[in-house]
Simulated scan of single mutants.
Amino acid sequence: MKRPLIAVLNGPNLNMLGLRQPDVYGHATLDDLEQVCLQAAERLDVTIDFRQTNIEGELVTWIQECRGRADGIVINPAAYSHTSIALLDALLAVGLPTVEVHISNVFRRETFRHHSYVSRAAIGVMAGFGVRGYALALQALTDMIEDEDQQ
């Protein structure tokens, strides 16, 4: 049986992890984050496609490319969470199970961060667990994919 493929998509400024506001986002770098995801994927027996971009349209294209290719999406849309109807529309169009991830607890931050357009397309949201939130999101998504396969 083929290993499920999960796209792990990251939005703007996540390439600055470890440098940008370590009091909020911690000291882990994007490379560290990718290693967390790869280790979780190995443990869960899934394949991941890990990507990061600062460009909204590129993120939309990557989401669209998941249709027919991936079994699910873990996405940290970063600031686009609060502004991008385009990401919401793309996620709804591909119809894949999606988990939204935020490294920080957005609900302990500025009020404009409390609303996410992307959440409307997500089956769940993981926020405030640092980079470990990605491993938790991968676990939850893998469990859901396996449950769907058994039905």
Score class of each variant (00 low, 15 high):
1 M>Y: 11
5 L>Q: 06
9 L>K: 01
10 N>H: 14
11 G>V: 02
12 P>N: 13
13 N>G: 09
13 N>P: 02
16 M>I: 00
17 L>F: 05
18 G>I: 04
18 G>A: 09
22 P>M: 04
23 D>N: 15
25 Y>S: 06
26 G>V: 02
30 L>H: 12
31 D>A: 15
32 D>I: 04
32 D>L: 02
33 L>D: 07
37 C>A: 14
40 A>S: 15
42 E>L: 10
42 E>R: 14
43 R>E: 14
43 R>L: 14
45 D>E: 13
46 V>M: 12
52 Q>N: 07
53 T>H: 05
53 T>A: 03
55 I>V: 12
55 I>G: 00
56 E>L: 01
57 G>L: 03
59 L>T: 07
59 L>C: 07
60 V>A: 11
60 V>L: 06
62 W>G: 00
62 W>R: 10
63 I>F: 07
64 Q>D: 14
65 E>C: 05
66 C>H: 02
67 R>Y: 12
68 G>P: 08
68 G>R: 09
69 R>S: 01
71 D>A: 14
73 I>C: 08
75 I>N: 05
76 N>L: 08
77 P>D: 10
81 S>A: 12
81 S>T: 15
82 H>L: 01
85 I>A: 14
86 A>E: 08
88 L>M: 02
88 L>H: 06
89 D>Q: 04
91 L>W: 08
92 L>Y: 11
92 L>Q: 13
94 V>G: 08
95 G>N: 06
99 V>L: 06
101 V>F: 11
101 V>Y: 13
104 S>F: 10
106 V>P: 00
106 V>T: 15
108 R>L: 08
110 E>C: 12
110 E>F: 12
115 H>E: 04
117 Y>L: 09
119 S>I: 00
119 S>Q: 08
121 A>G: 03
122 A>H: 01
124 G>F: 11
126 M>D: 02
126 M>L: 10
127 A>H: 14
127 A>K: 14
130 G>H: 08
131 V>W: 03
131 V>Y: 03
135 A>K: 01
138 L>T: 06
141 L>V: 03
144 M>W: 09
144 M>G: 10
145 I>P: 06
146 E>D: 12
147 D>A: 15
147 D>R: 14
148 E>V: 01
148 E>P: 00
149 D>G: 11
150 Q>G: 00
151 Q>R: 13
